[in-house]
Design a protein around this nucleic acid. Sequence first.
DNA 1: TTTAGTATGGTAACCGGTGTCATAAAGCTA
DNA 2: TAGCTTTATGACACCGGTTACCATACTAAA
Lengths: 352, 352
Amino acid sequence: MTETIETFLSRRRKATINDVARLSGVSKKTVSRVINNSPSVHPQTRDEIAEIIARIGFRPDPQARGLAFRRAFLIGLIYDNPNAQYVVNMQMGALDCLRGTGTELVVHPCDWHSAAFLSELREFLENQRPSGVIILPPIAEDRRLLDLLDELNVPHVRVTARTASSEDSSDAGREIVSRDDIGCAEAGAHIAALGHRRIGYIGGNLDYPSAHVRRRGFEAGLAAHGAAIAADLDERGDYSFDSGYEAARRLFEHPNRPTAIICANDEMAAGAYKAAYEAGLHIPGDLTLIGFDDAPIADRLSPPLTTVRLPTREMARMAADRLIAAQPIETGLVVDSALVVRGSSSAPKPGF
Amino acid sequence: MTETIETFLSRRRKATINDVARLSGVSKKTVSRVINNSPSVHPQTRDEIAEIIARIGFRPDPQARGLAFRRAFLIGLIYDNPNAQYVVNMQMGALDCLRGTGTELVVHPCDWHSAAFLSELREFLENQRPSGVIILPPIAEDRRLLDLLDELNVPHVRVTARTASSEDSSDAGREIVSRDDIGCAEAGAHIAALGHRRIGYIGGNLDYPSAHVRRRGFEAGLAAHGAAIAADLDERGDYSFDSGYEAARRLFEHPNRPTAIICANDEMAAGAYKAAYEAGLHIPGDLTLIGFDDAPIADRLSPPLTTVRLPTREMARMAADRLIAAQPIETGLVVDSALVVRGSSSAPKPGF
DNA sequence: TTTAGTATGGTAACCGGTGTCATAAAGCTA
DNA sequence: TAGCTTTATGACACCGGTTACCATACTAAA
């Protein structure tokens, strides 16, 4: 007695490729061909098998497939970044793309400054053999890591910042580039146009490429309106709230304090709010503040922070897209940042 | 010619169980026994094999192991929670425990209110067959989900909130319980002891068990000092910044406004800060504010927020621990919250 | 000494897919 | 119509582990 689809379904067991083969009267190899869209399967055969697959709800087992393919159906997200919202956005973006593909997202935070950094990552990559990994800043800049990925032949996409004028790197096709400077230039132009000329700056951690890119963007925007960062108001932080607070305090102690401060991210801008609050400076009346990230906190500050938004989620989506796309793409993918004007920026008081 | 370890190493191929068996002169079954710590392997044999394993750096392939065991060496983290910091803390906690075990963390945010919620999760569980999953609030309360996990036989641990006096649920051993009310009681006692008697409340989303537990905790703490939430100052939010802002505004419009407001989380407290700022109320001089979570924002507000801390990371660590522990544990695991006093609470002005 | 029991290790099949290669059938020259 | 490609399919080994089952060797009890 030949087994029918009905008798099979009544058994309620998870379907395997053998079931499909048996029910459709072909060898499992042919079913495998259908699963993998290989050519040279007769259209009619293909349709019949596809029909059976759909009827009995067969889904190839990722473990078995992974064993045969020598790679897991997993995408790794590798980062060492303290910004929870940023990380979660990236996760969601990657998942936007992965959902329904049968590939899962494995998160792999790590410690860039640990001695075991590379060996720990090597173990992960060698053991799990993910189909691909996405690397977030700042470790996306680590040449040793990129070399390791090449050595182990792990497809990867880096997320990194670049100025609009940078020439394409040799890694084009393996990176998602954000042009942080575009929005920064808008921001610089914005405050210069408002009339500010005593402009302070709180820069970011130089380990991050974004620190340089953003700086150049702000400068370009200011320069377009004949303004510039005051040489005596040029501070550096490390992207943390506290560093922003401290830097702002130093700026406020200056005999000729700034009427506007540009911060390389929102965290530091939030620190500057605190310093301003303590110094009795009213925002934006006494002081204009600009941030970068459009982090949740930007909206929660009073008044809400004028900042630059980066489409983080989209970037991760694009990165994951590349990794699961059948064909490698050769051109780099570029996204732009954009200014978001809120309540923390206004014209300086007359007399300044 | 017998192959030596040296000649093998010079080949630089990833070691398999067959290599170990060949080099140590036993069958792969015996090696498998060593890997899995089965008894009935002669101690000396075991040591010799372990030695070889270490020398050639053999690590069993999770894919192959997974195929044979019919489960993946993955722990899933399932949630639908908008709080990025909370989610990241949980991820880190789980990873604290997983690191070095060869088991990876797969993040699986989902949409509780989508029609495909269960079917999407079922597909994930059936396809990937994770060794276990951790479920975060609020979906840890979804009975359908728990039933699904039981049906598919997926080990799981729920993270949930419970009052100190709750009786043990039947799920003991499969949940990590946070006693949110402990810290809330401390907080209630704190402001009551400071002398507040016009006390407002901004509650949380009732979908979350924590909303009820926290409420009871605050009430108990207040009651211990003869205080209570004023019936006419009892608002409800949904844990979001905006809802906190709106609720606080309503409270401030009250002819006899509160001298203290308890918020069921920090996000809403931050919203209340904004409302207070706009209403010209000085914190803590004019208004005492209390939050819950000890979120990053608590520390960034000016003045920093008095709040209740929950050991989220530890909770996730414990949850993951349970899932990879060899023996199931029958007793529930309980952690306590604790008050963190910062600058947003002080005695009310005399005359109030 | 025999018998039963236990510790230890081997063999073969299996988990659910894939690769390689052979082969039958069909299409295309000439 | 013979001869050569091309297309469609299957047989079989293999990925790297596991379990089921069997075969020893050694130990304890009768």
